[in-house]
Design a protein around this nucleic acid. Structure first.
Lengths: 191, 191
DNA sequence: AATATCATGTAACATGTTACATGATTGG
DNA sequence: CCAATCATGTAACATGTTACATGATATT
């Protein structure tokens, strides 16, 4: 329970792709799972120590003195499968952007439009990143994983495209809102 | 800094809609912001105490003895505007579903399909909920907020529709994957 | 030689949930 | 009167990040 089953799952999962050092586990999670998962050193190293104590991973001779490469044991593979099968509860939502837009009346229409433009830009960058990852996959040797990795990449692409469409739609809606207010407040040239 | 600016923002924001008790703040956040924000009592009550100490909210006569209704002070309105303007860093991603699908090779194709079907059902339920909230908004008296609340509702709808499309697409992809494997492994009836 | 990267680990801090204790009021 | 809901608050626990300390190896 300590160190949370989620961290345990992420670390065992990383090691299931190939044996690696703690440092590499962190890099793997940051670069490969980075769009939908994260772990810090403060979680990873204690988790590795505990997993080793429990016989779920074993330290092999590291490439350098003072470093260890960890590999799953048979028990570790079993534990990974068990954790994967357990029901997952989605983390409580914490979307700082939505919180700001929800109180947009206090924030002001112009600031909201700026947030939406920024969100649109970030979504476009995410979309481009996912398409780059998709292209990179062609050169990756772990082909057994590809059908599943493509599913997560596709999720990122769908979400990013939805964010772009939503931002465009909302920017239009806010502009009309603003136009309507402007007409009401300063009726310089009514018909 | 203690109690985090995010909790402070959510509580001040809730009170900006109308004065209410701590209990009601929690209910407001759970029911109205529930799809993109959450706070627990353990956060809300200490935050209220601190906000009152700092003169950002004031306790009014509660509807019952022993209860207080909190309202924003002028300073509180200013602080809310200030917090809303501050840049938001997105919380580190923690998507348990994606983590499981990423290691789908270990989990197995059938279990992945079950996860995708479940995700699809949940996305459909979310979509229906957002549409219900949209309908309810017609009877809500705080019309000044509606343009902004509609933006967050729209975000939920776009995201839910994207999740449904992604799940359908991925279920198809996994079925084909499975068919291909089945043909390779048990070529009973080739042409 | 200096800088960047690889590598390990921890202590201090920050954040957040759950379960419990307590009691008033409302509605059936 | 009894159950549900309203209402406040906290202590124990769980989770998670950051900054630091330390040093090897690789790259320029």
């Amino acid at each position: 329970m300590a160190r949370g089953r989620q961290t345990e799952l992420a670390v065992l999962g990383a090691l299931s792709v190939q044996p690696m050092t703690g440092y590499a586990v962190r890099e793997e999670i940051r670069q490969v799972l980075g769009h939908f998962w994260s772990e810090s050193y403060g979680q990873i190293y204690p988790a590795l120590a505990e997993l080793q104590r429990d016989g779920l991973i074993e330290a092999q001779q590291g490439a350098r003195p003072g470093s260890s490469t960890y590999a799953l044991t048979a028990a570790g593979r079993g534990r990974l499968a068990e954790l994967l099968r357990q029901p997952h509860q989605p983390a409580p939502p914490r979307n700082a952007l939505m919180l700001r837009l929800f109180f947009g009346r206090t924030l002001g229409a112009e600031a909201c439009r700026a947030l939406l433009r920024q969100a649109r830009t970030e979504a476009e960058q995410r979309l481009a990143q996912f398409q780059a990852i998709r292209a990179e996959l062609a050169t990756d040797p772990h082909t057994e994983h590809h059908p599943y990795w493509l599913i997560t990449i596709s999720a990122g692409e769908h979400t990013a495209r939805a964010a772009i469409a939503w931002a465009d739609e909302s920017l239009t809606a806010l502009s009309q809102q603003n136009d309507a207010q402007a007409r009401t407040q300063t009726p310089h040239d009514g018909p």
